[in-house]
Design a protein around this nucleic acid. Structure first.
Lengths: 96, 96
DNA sequence: AAGTTTACTTACGTCAAACATAAGTAATTG
DNA sequence: CAATTACTTATGTTTGACGTAAGTAAACTT
């Protein structure tokens, strides 16, 4: 199930980092020592930002790793919410 | 590789929520419609807080889902950092 | 013009981990 | 003493992140 208007981290990577910086996925892959397909799949939303990837982006771009994992978290939450909303609604909040 | 002094989210769940609230893992599992072993394994640090689990905790405890996923993120980062620190150090920050 | 490097994508097999089911034990409650 | 509560561990399935590799094409080098 693909939620509309939910930007995945790969879009941010491409639009906010690679393109403005004049960088290719090929160059980035070499620079952070990962295979090219990892980046290709991230950019096309087929793979998530893992802790490993976040740490590498972090060092290269000078961002925090949580920035990248936060983007992923936001995306995953938005994707998952509608899938399980029916069951979530059945959950009663704890009464202290 | 198990980093010392890194608290996993299961510890927080037990020490900061279940115990103070007089709740058992059994009751929580029933309340949020998940199998008991899922909670048992989380509490013992053998399983991570997934998006699904975070959304359920969120509704039941009245916290944000990001609170739980944030704990997991912090834990995962601390665990992973030492594993790949050598390779990360070889990454050169991008020069604009 | 031929060859090397850059650039990207897709196919494929592996492995780790999140999942549910189920079974087992023990303590508590009716 | 039977049912429920409570917890743990074993087992099998599926998903997804991983690397390797191969394919195509464009842009440089020589």
């Amino acid at each position: 199930m693909e939620k509309l208007n939910n930007i995945h981290p790969g879009e941010v990577l491409k639009a906010e980092f690679l393109d403005p910086m004049g960088l290719t996925a090929y160059k980035l892959a070499k620079a952070i020592f990962i295979p090219q397909n990892r980046l290709s799949e991230i950019i096309h939303g087929k793979r998530s930002i893992s802790v490993d990837t976040a740490l590498r982006f972090s060092k290269f771009f000078g961002t925090s790793p949580k920035f990248w994992l936060g983007l992923q978290m936001d995306y995953d939450l938005e994707e998952k919410k509608p899938e399980i909303s029916a069951e979530i609604q059945e959950i009663k909040a704890f009464q202290e």
